[in-house]
């Protein structure tokens, strides 16, 4: 158990809770102004937010190990969704088991706080192991495409997301005076706020499409409004959760807004190539798990390394 419940956590969680209450109320109120299908989808979406909020908050405030287990499960579900939607070769069936097995191993390094291993295990060790496995599979047809696809899947769904796990266990002695749980809440909350804000700004004011070849729904108004909202909220909540001053909080907000946008589009591009609307249907109203964590696959590692650098520089 956490020896001490960080004082900044409670107001932020309460704020998040009230936002969900308000959103639920607004959607109920809009019932008569929406089409039946649009209404059902919004209700489902907000209900899913409640469930995500509940599970996430419970895991974060209870125990580090529980949070690492939750992240292991999320990476597993994301990777499974990925290999189920992309073309895979029969020859790589057994290799896939090795990749699945490496998910709990990656989170075990995090549990031990073995920083070096956490950083090289997937980008280096697994990169080479993957090729050994493919060579032993004795199939050259589609070799490069299959190898690149599987490596990409591991980087996105395991390596990137596992940075949230390491953020959680960052030791205080390393010069950080923030609790891991606060940092995780900070980055996850802002990334999701950015997604929602981009959607809302785009729906209400957006008309000029920003990059229709990748996603027909993304507009300039959504993009800029999202960055603005995220930066503003970052400055409001960072005193409670992070050691950042106002300027740093603003920069962090900008970073999350811009990179979250690209994370979102990266998964959109794949969906476009594969001619699918959603990556799955695990989360009602949202789509698959990759649809929900797409922005996080960019913001989590970038925020983590920026934060690491920041604490290193500021001593």
């Amino acid at each position: 158990m956490n020896a001490y419940f960080p004082p900044g956590l409670l107001p932020v969680l309460a704020g998040n809770f009230s936002v969900l209450v308000i959103a639920t109320g607004i959607i109920r109120g809009l019932r008569n102004h929406l089409s039946n299908m649009g209404y059902t989808e919004l209700v489902q979406r907000v209900r899913s937010w409640w469930i995500i909020f509940g599970i996430f908050t419970f895991a974060i405030v209870t125990d580090k190990v529980l949070f690492l287990l939750l992240m292991t499960l999320i990476s597993y579900l994301a990777f499974k969704e990925f290999v189920s939607m992309v073309p895979v070769r029969r020859a790589d069936r057994k290799l896939l088991l090795l990749l699945y097995l490496s998910i709990p191993i990656q989170y075990t390094w995090i549990w031990f706080q073995w920083y070096g291993m956490f950083l090289v295990f997937i980008p280096v060790v697994l990169f080479l192991l993957l090729q050994v496995g493919m060579i032993l599979g004795r199939e050259t047809r589609g070799y490069l495409r299959a190898g690149a696809t599987l490596y990409w899947g591991m980087m996105i769904s395991v390596f990137s997301l596992s940075h949230l796990g390491y953020l959680m266990v960052l030791p205080q002695e390393q010069g950080t005076h923030a609790y891991g749980a606060c940092l995780v809440i900070y980055i996850v909350l802002l990334t999701q706020i950015n997604d929602v804000a981009q959607y809302l700004w785009g729906k209400t004011l957006g008309h000029t499409k920003i990059i229709p070849e990748i996603s027909p729904n993304k507009t300039w108004a959504g993009f800029l409004g999202g960055i603005f909202t995220t930066s503003a909220i970052s400055m409001v909540i960072s005193p409670a959760l992070t050691p950042f001053g106002t300027i740093t909080a603003l920069i962090a907000g900008l970073l999350i807004g811009i990179t979250g946008f690209f994370g979102d589009l990266s998964i959109s591009a794949i969906k476009r190539e594969l001619c699918m609307k959603n990556t799955g249907d695990l989360i009602p109203g949202h789509g698959g798990i990759l649809d929900r964590v797409d922005s996080l696959t960019f913001t989590a590692p970038l925020f983590f390394h920026c934060f690491y650098l920041y604490t290193f520089i500021s001593g």
Binding site: K80, E81, R93, K94, L96, L97, Y100
Partner: peptide
């Protein structure tokens, strides 16, 4: 003909 289960949706 396979004995190992590999997770797929």
């Amino acid at each position: 003909g396979e004995k190992l289960l590999v997770p797929f949706i």
